[in-house]
Design a protein around this nucleic acid. Structure first.
Lengths: 205, 205, 205, 205
DNA sequence: ATATAAGCGAGACGGTACGTCGGGTCTTGAA
DNA sequence: TTCAAGACCCGACGTACCGTCTCGCTTATAT
């Protein structure tokens, strides 16, 4: 028996839920995550504070859900699963460059920058939220790489002994590193280099 | 004409500075970064709050300096530059595995975990601090890779067209990724795989 | 359009209000007005600081209300309006000596001395508070004099052309003067002299 | 053997003393007593804080001295003791009305209002300062009344049994009362009434 | 069809920490 | 030694939010 009282989610106000998502995203965009407060979200959403505390454990949780919802919303708007796959033209190198370039563009898009940085940062420090961040936002993306790399392995474009779960990090890891810590700019050229280095190795053959 | 009034750093109390570093690191270790407060640091250090506000712009800045100082201190204690180089035995693969395993151990060390996560997270969200984090803590490490990889290139163990600045991210990026987002455990085996994959490439030869 | 946000007084906590009055009076009694702080009052009352700032503009305002409430409380305790009148025995001189002696005793009472001095001092310097001090604490007393002196005038014990509003100050003014500035001790003999001098005049008849 | 260290007043900087007086009076005039700070006075006077703490025990003490000095200064400027006496034309009533009217004018003068109210208020609450306030500023004035009233008693214009020390308060007390507590406006008419009431008494003759 | 109970908006409440101001002490360097 | 300058420890300021807790009000079953 968990929290002395579990709210009845069938009676939950959809209206408020949406308003809270909107307010949260808007505020993070406008003033940044740190200066976004639960009181502020409630006020902006025209909602009582309790309505937030009833359904979410923390500011970060609200934002995470809002962000996930944003993706769901976008996807539904596109009718179904648009570009939800890494293309398979048979040319692995080209396909990977294509997605990595797309990822670079997305990471450079200022609309997504603030909220996703905020979530990532919070996840770094808060394991519970980090797990949900990974599970709901990151993992689905990574699975696409697993799938594509496995296919490439079947097709003999990747060595048999390679584990796709690890291999994908050669692409995603450096990108995330540059993005999170801003060690250097994220460019298409960089994405290309990454793919080339990773596929062909650093050592001479 | 910066802040309407710059304090006179020649009159700064070294005593207070040290006490603040110590208090900050201790508190972050004990209660975590989020619940470490400037008031708490001041109280623990036996120092007025103003003395902190006079010299640092934020909690994160205090901690960053404290952390950097910790490194400096440790280095001096060791008389000079102990293990401040990546070994060069002539066997690049072995040397890289060696350092990466050491890095894995360090990242898994709970004493350094809390404060460095906190700093990294703050840097993700706060560009100014992030820049200082990178410059003072990360970059020196990265330079060691640049140096070792350049040597390897001279020795013909790395292809001529490889840019060491980018190459190093194939090792460091995935490690940081796993560490920051906890997508999977950091093990020596993982470090080894990374080195092998990156040096020899994913594609068959 | 007053303060951008007026609190809803129907929701006010009576419990807190009382606790704040008690704490304020206790502290002023114990450490004096100057060393009584809002933080101290809040802590002693077991109340958040904001609860004080929400309802009062200043420390002096809290104390004034607490003091007024004290009077109200005392009066209610006595069932009704005990000694809330200047007696009228027909002998004006005796009646005035009686009240002035009582006032002298009250002013010499150390329990009331500290808080009422503090309020008076604050009122001297802060017109707004001074007005409320006069209106809520002083004026009701003065009205008693107006009433008694008017009766005396009707009875022919005071000259027709005398304005009671001014006449009362011949009694109250000197008393207040001695009390506030401590120019000389406040005694019954002094009270008596005042009454005699004022009633019969300084000039020979 | 008082304060562990008595400063050597022969080496005191006259320059600083004057600058502190000026700064103190100017600040009280500009921002009021409560918001005048020792730091502010020091900064304005171009003086170290210690120089103030060395020579005065409190803000109020500085202001009191500055105020007294103002009077001395003014008097010296007038070559000697201008209007430092209550006139004696033989007509006591006229003479008293004259001085009381002058006092009313002075109390209504906004230049003297702020600082003298501040000092009076501080004296109400701080006995030590109050004593010095009375002794240095008030008492000299009161002595003038004592002198004039004594002369009047000798001349038979005041009853033999009247004590001038008390009698003077019938004039000064009500005036101070109105001024300090702002119970009613201070006018010449009021001053006149006071003199008439006090001299001839309230009771019919 | 109506009681009954939940979610809801609003916002007061006890708290913690913020970043700032000023108090009074102490130290440094110039005169 | 005094002085200007200002760093220091400290305590309080008034504000912002936290998360909890009533208050009516509305809505949506469950009698």
């Amino acid at each position: 028996m968990a929290d002395t009282k579990a709210p009845d989610s069938t009676r939950r106000s959809e209206r408020s839920r949406r308003a809270i998502y909107d307010a949260a995203l808007a505020l993070v965009g406008e003033v940044g995550y740190a200066r976004t407060t639960i009181e502020g979200i409630a006020a902006r959403a025209g909602v009582g504070k309790q309505t937030i505390y009833r359904w979410w454990p923390s500011k970060a949780a609200v934002l995470l859900e809002a962000f996930v919802d944003l993706g769901v919303q976008a996807n539904e708007a596109l009718g179904g699963d648009a570009d939800t796959e890494i293309p398979d033209t048979g040319d692995l190198e080209a396909d990977l460059k294509f997605v990595l370039r797309a990822t670079v563009d997305e990471l450079n898009d200022p609309r997504h920058d603030a909220p996703s940085r905020a979530l990532a940062a919070e996840g770094v420090v808060n394991p519970e939220l980090g797990a949900r961040f990974v599970e709901q936002l990151l993992e689905p993306q990574l699975q696409l790489y697993v799938k594509r790399l496995s296919a490439a392995r079947e097709a003999g474009q990747v060595r048999r002994e390679i584990d796709p779960r690890i291999a994908l990090e050669l692409f995603v890891g450096p990108l995330a590193h540059r993005w999170l810590l801003r060690t250097a700019p994220l460019t298409h050229a960089y994405a290309d280099s990454l793919v080339e280095y990773a596929l062909h190795g650093l050592a001479p053959r």
